[in-house]
Amino acid sequence: MIDHVRDLASVRDATERLLSAAAKWDSAAISEPSRLPGWTRGHVLAHLARNADALVNVLAGRPMYVSAEARDADIARDAPRPLGVQLDDVRESAGRFEAQAAVPADWSRTITMRNGVTDSASRVPFRRWVEVELHHVDLGVGYELEDLPEEFVQREITFLTARFAGNPDVPPTWITNGTHTWSTGRRGDAEVTVSGSAPDLVGWLAGRRDGSALTAEGGLLPALPPL
C-alpha cells in the first residue's frame, strides 16, 4: 500500500540532500553540462523547481503544465540564473509542493499528469521523489545510482517495469537483481531474462545507463523506449 505521508518525508530528505550538495558549488558550476544531453546543471535545477509547481497544479486539480512549449520555455528561461537564485527557487517551490500536499484531500482520487496519464493522487509524492533522486544523479556531482536509498531503487524498478508492461515494442522480459524478480514488456511468455545489480537495473530502465553491465539470457538486451 502506498504511504503518501512517508513518501513526502522521503521527498523532503532527498531535497535537502540535493540542496546541501549544490550549496558547495562555485558560481561557475551552474553553467557546466549535466549528464542530460543539452542541459546544463542550471537546466536540471530549473526543471526541478518548475516540476514542483507543476505537481502543485496536479494536486489542486489544474493542468500540470499550460503546454509542452510553455514547460520547455520556462526551463530555458530559468536555467541561466545565478546559483543562489536557483537554490532558493528549488527550496521555495518544494515548500509550495509540501504546503499543497498538506491540504486535506482524498488521496485515493485520480489525478491527471502530462500527456493525459492518470494515476492515484497517493502516488504523486513518489513521483516527486523520483524527480529529485534521479535528477540529483543527473547533476553529475558525485551522487550516483549506487547512492540512492535501497527502498527507492526497489520501488522505482517496480514502477518502471509496470510502466513498460504491455508495451508492444518491448519483448516479454524477466528482470532480476538476484533477490527480486519483475516482469515487463508485451504479453507472452518471457524468453529473455535480464540480470544485474539493482542500481544498474534502475539506470537502464530510467535511461541513465546503457545496460552494458547487465546480462541478458535467452536473447538480446531489449531496447527500451524513452520515458
Rank of each mutant, 00 (worst) to 15 (best):
A121C: 01
W25E: 02
A68H: 10
V103A: 07
V130Y: 09
G196M: 12
D74E: 12
G218S: 06
S183I: 07
G84N: 06
L8W: 03
D13Y: 08
L36V: 14
A60D: 07
G185H: 07
A105F: 04
W182P: 14
V5N: 03
L36S: 09
Q86F: 02
L201M: 14
V117N: 08
P37C: 08
S10Q: 14
A49K: 05
T15D: 13
G203E: 13
A14V: 05
M113A: 13
G203S: 10
A198D: 08
L148H: 10
V194E: 12
L221H: 06
V194W: 06
D106F: 03
L148C: 14
A162K: 14
S212E: 10
A99L: 03
H4K: 00
F97A: 02
W25A: 06
R77W: 04
A213R: 15
A105N: 06
D138Y: 12
P226I: 05
G188N: 10
A22K: 02
R128A: 07
A68R: 15
I75L: 10
A14E: 07
R109L: 01
A121R: 02
E146F: 01
R6G: 13
P104D: 04
A54M: 10
D119H: 01
D169G: 00
F152D: 00
A102Y: 06
G95Q: 03
G166Q: 07
A99E: 14
G140P: 04
A213Y: 01
L8I: 10
A14H: 08
H180L: 14
R127L: 15
T184G: 09
R71S: 01
W204G: 11
P149H: 11
Q86K: 00
V194F: 07
G196V: 14
A213I: 05
T184P: 09
E156T: 04
L205P: 03
A14C: 11
F126D: 01
A73I: 03
D3L: 05
V117G: 01
A101N: 05
G166D: 06
A52N: 15
I30A: 13
Q154I: 13
A21R: 15
A54N: 05
G84A: 14
A49H: 13
L87A: 09
G196I: 12
I175S: 06
T179C: 00
G84S: 13
R128K: 12
T193F: 05
G61W: 12
G178M: 13
L214N: 10
T181A: 15
S122K: 04
R81M: 12
N177Q: 11
E217A: 15
G188Q: 08
P125K: 01
R17Q: 15
P226T: 02
D88H: 02
R77C: 05
A206I: 01
E16P: 00
Y65Q: 04
L148N: 05
E131F: 08
V137P: 09
P168R: 04
L45M: 12
R50D: 11
I157N: 04
T158L: 03
A23D: 11
N177K: 14
D138E: 09
S195I: 09
V132G: 12
L36D: 02
H43Q: 09
I2V: 13
V130T: 11
I175A: 06
P63W: 10
G203W: 09
T184C: 14
